[in-house]
Write a protein that binds this DNA or RNA. Sequence first.
DNA 1: GTTAATAGTAAGTACTTACTTACATCTTTA
DNA 2: TAAAGATGTAAGTAAGTACTTACTATTAAC
Lengths: 187, 187
Amino acid sequence: MKAKEKILQAAYDCFSKRGYTGATTREIARLAGVSEVTLFRLFGNKKELFREVLINFSVIPDLRSISIPEGSGSEVLAEVGRKIFLSLKEKKEFLKILLSEITGLAEEAREVYSHFVETFEYLLLEVFSSVFSSSSCSELREKVRVFGAALFGFFVSEEIFQGKELSPEEIDSFIETLVRFLSGGSH
Amino acid sequence: MKAKEKILQAAYDCFSKRGYTGATTREIARLAGVSEVTLFRLFGNKKELFREVLINFSVIPDLRSISIPEGSGSEVLAEVGRKIFLSLKEKKEFLKILLSEITGLAEEAREVYSHFVETFEYLLLEVFSSVFSSSSCSELREKVRVFGAALFGFFVSEEIFQGKELSPEEIDSFIETLVRFLSGGSH
DNA sequence: GTTAATAGTAAGTACTTACTTACATCTTTA
DNA sequence: TAAAGATGTAAGTAAGTACTTACTATTAAC
């Protein structure tokens, strides 16, 4: 692994553990096993390094790579919900960085987040319109909103705030309930 | 207003704007209109001040003070949802602090958050068991989870991440959709 | 084998941070 | 009026921060 990669990975770990202000270039360099001078030569300054971390470890590619599976309506929804949740889980540290800097470093973080929301909603809208083909456009968007908010809220609350590592069964259980309500029946 | 109160208020503003590490005792004192020495005399150190801010500006009292209104099932749910959302909105800055410090300052922040989740779920369970009196206990808890996650996720995503200030109509619209799905019918 | 790129070491700069000490001023209370 | 408490000013400490400069060592390319 080249120095640049090692630094990016160390910065990712360090920013997610200590936040932007809390992370120091010294510690990042030490973790990466390179000198601090190398860090500054390759990235110029701390903020630029942060920006590159946000680009390199984004959850977006994971979301984009999710394909719509075959099956009945409820099955498709549940499967996509599962995949989204797992993508979020895999990029948990990245999301922690985003969370911890959303107030302080507004510009960069908010930009990345907006992009995330767009991709998220676009993907869901695609899925929902294939599953609920008879629904109106506004009806679809309502469902996407509720589904997205519930999934995201569940993830943030359990995995990030409470620091839990949910098992596949716990995730499935939540998603199946959610899909049941959205599909119209409560039984 | 006494010095202690002024400092607490200034610290609240400053922590929510810059995060724990980003906020400085100098700026807090300046904002409060007191000397930095007074700050240290009254609070000992920065961490202790932070702890007192978390206690003083918690969203818990707001949540606890929510009473269950009269009306049909759906009306009650929607009204409670609205009240919860408004409580969150009122303590938005407090929640930003919690969010930005959940990873860095784990102990204090996580403790406060756990307390928040408990109160949140307890309140919802009370409401749901009066609204869906025929549902089983596990069914009730499932509904509470979905309702809570969706409400919280919607708030965090829109108000905190995207920095929007949602109008009462937008809030109502989301909550009504959510209640409709949870009440079993999609029409 | 020379050159150019990539890394490291050592030292230092200019600044900021949390926090302290010593002493003076004002206000309230007894 | 005297004592006690709360606040301010001025100055400083020790440590940490991002970032720089000057120079050296290693590696790969031509």
